[in-house]
Nucleic acid binder design. Structure first.
Lengths: 299, 299
DNA sequence: GAACTGAGTTTAGAAAAACTAAGGCTAGAT
DNA sequence: ATCTAGCCTTAGTTTTTCTAAACTCAGTTC
């Protein structure tokens, strides 16, 4: 009779969290991003878990992993548990002395859409400490300690998501450059400025408005939209502008629209708020503020 | 404008678990026992958490800690979350190749009540691996990976708890010793064997049946009931017997009851089963087996 | 068909977290 | 007045976790 093997220890909590993230997101790489660690760390966590049970949780394929049946059955349990834990942690954070609101956004949105609105927001909510995070992919608001996110992405029926404005794209450039452009074909003579994160923009627009034949021509590529914008402001060429991001420049006259046509993409600017039922009042206040699209006074 | 402080990390999961345990159990010492660490470790976890939020979670008194208001508000959130996590972990364990059932019991119960029943149980469920854990205090079945617990303790209205048998106590000794004992006063001439974990037993019994005057006399104390029992079997004196634990010896004639009177304590032998809704079938099978009080054949 | 790519794995070593042990403090109990 | 239970603190150690970098493998691309 086996007596007192020192008490059965459960698997490490961090390994469980890694499993949940990897299973939910469908890959170690994605999970590693959400948890801010390297993929190797995730791999090791999963292995710990698989060694603990003796049953494989993932099936390793050359291009990613897929959940085994066991893994699929387990996932909802863990997702529910970590959702609950996320809410509890959020409640814990809410006890902090000075209320903090964390907003995550695409770098371009942070800089070109949010930044101009911040002064008014801060003025309206002086007791709140704001933190802005620039990131490429929308965070999971029920897990990370982020209250509001601003991203261009496909619509969903999530009740926590609100469309702030549709995404209209159209060519923009300085008025100098615009003088030389009266019809689409004229674009052939100019540098088309591309941004890596929206690499399809020009294709989309040209498909509808562009000249029938359109061979590759001079183009510039940037990894940050705001760099591309700077270049356009400097008269280096024609940029495909996103309404929400270039409106300020258009209003100020720094940039103009050389041609009329615009396209509405299927990825509007969406604001998502964290799903906590009893969210601190500050968060919903802030969300309303942004929805109502306040601007700084002197603009 | 503050941009990209490397992503707000939540507090360590282990610290959250420590808080939950300490808050639920009402002390660091208790929590440290449940989590199998030293109280110092708990203390540090709590401090980590308190530093993270900036608000105190516990109020330190000289004789223990009490939850602050914030702590009280937070506790249910975390309890719920960790309950869910416990269930998920249990589900994970259920995927293990060969089903395992872990039974926790008071050392004396494990040895004197459970052990004789194990051969039949193993025979009835040959595909299951059983693990018996001896421990002093009932474990939290919704947290630890233990399926069934067997303890003498006060009744509760928990639906997962079942009374296996009432706890009757009465003096027992060898038939040799019994010859010299015909009425309670005769006990004065013999060693009264005590067990540390039930130190009140003799007092209780003597209060009802004992001689009016009863000065302290020879007595032996043991920290393990089975050691006390061994001593009684060897004719060293009179032990206060618990029905569930000495029945075998009575049946076999190794021990006898020199006097008639017995007392029913308010701490029956209770079996508790883990609360998982979809508990593996093996666990409920095992529980039913124990409830029906099977014995080994040749007894 | 050779090189490339994306996703995961594996190691060793480094960094961080968690734990223990031992000494201190304080208020209620003896 | 002393004892004791329960928690705190600190230093040092052990354990866990993470990273970096090289490796594997199977589709893709040229």
């Amino acid at each position: 009779m086996s007596v007192s093997p020192p008490r059965p220890k459960g698997p490490p909590l961090n390994a469980l969290r890694a499993f949940e993230a990897a299973a939910r997101l469908g890959g170690f790489a994605q999970a590693s991003e959400e948890l801010c660690v390297t993929p190797g760390a995730i791999s090791q966590h999963i292995k710990t878990l698989e060694d603990w049970t003796g049953t494989p949780l993932f099936q390793r394929k050359a291009h990613g992993v897929v959940l085994t049946e066991d893994g699929q059955r387990l996932l909802p349990h863990f997702t529910q548990a970590f959702d609950a834990l996320g809410n509890a942690t959020r409640a814990l954070r809410a006890t902090m002395a000075l209320p903090t609101i964390t907003i995550a956004a695409l770098p371009s949105i942070a800089q070109l859409w949010l930044s101009p609105r911040m002064p008014a927001l801060r003025a309206a909510m002086p007791e709140v400490r704001f933190t802005i995070l620039a990131m490429e992919t929308p965070p999971n608001l029920s897990r990370e300690l982020i209250d509001i996110s601003l991203f261009m992405r496909p619509t969903s029926d999530d009740e926590n998501q609100h469309i702030l404005c549709e995404d209209h794209i159209f060519p923009v450039c300085t008025s100098e450059v615009a003088k030389q452009i009266v019809k689409p074909v004229d674009l052939l003579d100019h540098t088309l400025i591309h941004d890596e994160s929206w690499s399809d923009d020009w294709d989309l627009w040209l498909k509808k408005y562009g000249p029938d034949v359109f061979n590759t021509q001079t183009e510039a590529r940037y990894s940050l939209y705001s760099l591309a914008l700077d270049d356009a402001r400097a008269g280096a060429g024609v940029l495909m502008g996103h309404a929400a991001l270039v409106n300020r420049d258009l209003e100020k006259g720094i940039l103009v629209r050389p041609l009329e046509g615009f396209i509405q993409t299927d990825q509007p600017l969406i604001m998502e708020t964290s799903p906590l039922k009893n969210a601190p009042k500050e968060v919903s206040d802030c969300a309303h503020y942004l929805m109502n699209d306040h601007r700084i006074g002197n603009e």
